[in-house]
Design a protein around this nucleic acid. Structure first.
Lengths: 337, 337
DNA sequence: ATGAAAGCGCTAACAT
DNA sequence: ATGTTAGCGCTTTCAT
């Protein structure tokens, strides 16, 4: 604009020329400034300033062989539990001076495979995926690129990739058994979509094998709104349950709201339990009993694992985090027991 | 491992050698496959497969001068409104074949400046920041790198960077005026931290100049928990307000819960209004009256603007999205008016 | 249709 | 302390 001879971005050579030094010297003031004499340094810095020189990230990357970027593939960002997890992940990665690229898959494995390719195309040095259900292409990509990759939110020591997560089936079981121990047997289960969501599937699996339980199932999208909708379906049935087990706190939050709207008392008329333990769950009214999922610790551990793998080549071993029951006010013993 | 002569990642030359062609030909089968004879293509592809060749992102970037990465600096991921916004942003950016790197600042401008540098170091081609309050270093960096950068969640046509957002002061005003029109005058305002959060500041600003309003202010962290805490403070005062204006729906959600816990009827005893319109806000009990912030459209517009800027060099003009009042069930006319 | 060779912007080994 | 130079892995003329 105001520069007569419009010049593209300056490079090392331009700086070197202007400062009357070699490119090596310029490179040194950038990387090992202590090894350069004060006055030359000053001249070089002046040239850098004058030319508004900014080192090229790509050129650096090509030499170091590093991009310092890791990619995470998550179903969605628009869900508190993933957001929370990613927040922890990003925070820890940044301690390792690694940046986080987020790609959302919408729970679609083929989108995931395609976005994984995009991540490789921008030079991601590591990949983090959710769950263990993926397209073969994803695994081929990881294999072909020899890419450090871990699967999270799931635990399976036999999985191809190291898993860092928790026992989803166990979380479901804990919730169910607590309800059972409270004397409930007619229980409505509200769960997220079964399409390509192994976490939901596993939680459901954890509900099996309890003869005393009379379970009815209600599928819903993972939103407060759908929690409300599921509640209406539950209430419209003759054989009303005495407890509602939600496989996710978001769902449970909707259930709580809708029960309130119908003037159904919780936990007096119906007990409600969730899984997740979102930040808000401790403060709903009534406070939600739930199974705590250690997503923050999982995020930190994942960041550490992938960093170590990238930096030192050591493949992490799988890692299991405990889930635990958090009893609050939305559950109580079945009356008349 | 099982490869006798352990070989590092293969490159174009290795492939060319194995396929008995030149590197140019290999490059062609990668980029313009139609310009290569079928049989040579087959030979080359076989070599690529055998050597498990993966093109280097850095080397591509150095030639194209592109990284296809844009960076976003947000206060936190762990808040529904930002997560929702980023979800929209990422979705649209990916349509432009751009990847999103997320960096969180914790609302700290100096962390922001430092992370912006990190983003530049990995070769980000564009930057997206939140609000208009930043360290001089941030602006210097943007200026020095001639980096396309936009500020979001805020609107100010006079700002150095193009702003793409909404009128925060206006949103505050809309909420207050609605409460006023309902006959409320003693109003408690619950707002987020004032530290380097120009959005909160602006919303507060929008509350000024209404003589009939008797406002009392309560600062809180942006969490359901702190919404509850603020409510307790409000209720403990003698001169109880007839309405509570929350500058964020998360806060309002906490307020709603806590009022319920204290058996204060909403909206009969106290009206509650929020700002944001989170997905869940339509389904709280009672459903929350709030001011809708068009973060999804803002995310899409931001993605489009930064993409066009990066690809075609056209600096976007600022963009203002309307906020609008969504009347639901948590507000009503002050009784006895 | 294919190849040879010149870079892209930087780092690092080797000289001086 | 500073300079020379050879790459890094690819794309892209320019020939053939």
């Amino acid at each position: 604009m105001d520069n007569p001879k419009y010049r593209k971005r300056a490079n090392l050579r331009d700086v070197a020329k202007l400062a009357n030094v070699s490119v090596a010297t310029v490179s040194r003031v950038l990387n090992t400034p202590d090894s350069v004499a004060e006055n030359t340094k000053a001249v070089v810095n002046a040239a850098i300033a004058e030319l508004r020189f900014v080192p090229s990230a790509a050129a650096r990357a090509i030499n170091s062989g590093r991009s310092r970027v890791v990619g995470a593939l998550v179903p969605t960002l628009d869900h508190a539990i993933f957001a929370r997890y990613l927040a922890a992940l990003e925070q820890k990665l940044s301690e390792y001076r690694l940046s986080l690229v987020v790609a959302t898959t919408n729970g679609d494995a083929s989108v995931e495979a395609q976005k994984a390719q995009t991540l490789v195309d921008i030079g991601a040095e590591g990949l983090i995926v959710s769950g263990i259900t993926h397209e073969p292409e994803l695994f081929e990509l990881i294999e072909r690129c020899q890419l450090p990759a871990v699967a999270t939110s799931y635990f399976d020591p036999d999985f191809l990739l190291p898993t860092i997560g928790y026992d989803n089936a166990g979380a479901g079981r804990i919730a169910l058994e607590y309800l059972l121990s409270l004397g409930h047997s007619a229980i409505a289960v509200v769960h997220g979509s079964l399409n390509s969501n192994d976490r939901t599937l596993a939680r459901l699996k954890g509900l099996e094998g309890h003869d005393t339980a009379r379970l009815s199932f209600f599928e819903a999208d993972l939103s407060i709104e759908d929690g409300c909708a599921a509640t209406n379906k539950i209430l419209s049935r003759d054989d009303g349950p005495t407890a509602i087990l939600c496989l996710s706190d978001v769902l449970a939050t909707g259930v709580l709201y809708e029960l309130k709207r119908h003037k159904v008392a919780v936990p007096d008329d119906i007990s409600v339990i969730g899984i997740d333990d979102l930040p808000g769950s401790a403060h709903t009214f009534p406070a939600l009993t739930t199974v705590h999922l250690p997503v923050v610790r999982m995020g930190h551990a994942t960041a550490t694992a992938i960093s170590e793998w990238i930096e030192h080549g050591k493949r992490p071993s799988e890692r299991l985090f405990e889930t635990d029951l958090v009893v609050r006010e939305s559950t109580r013993a079945r009356t008349g027991i």
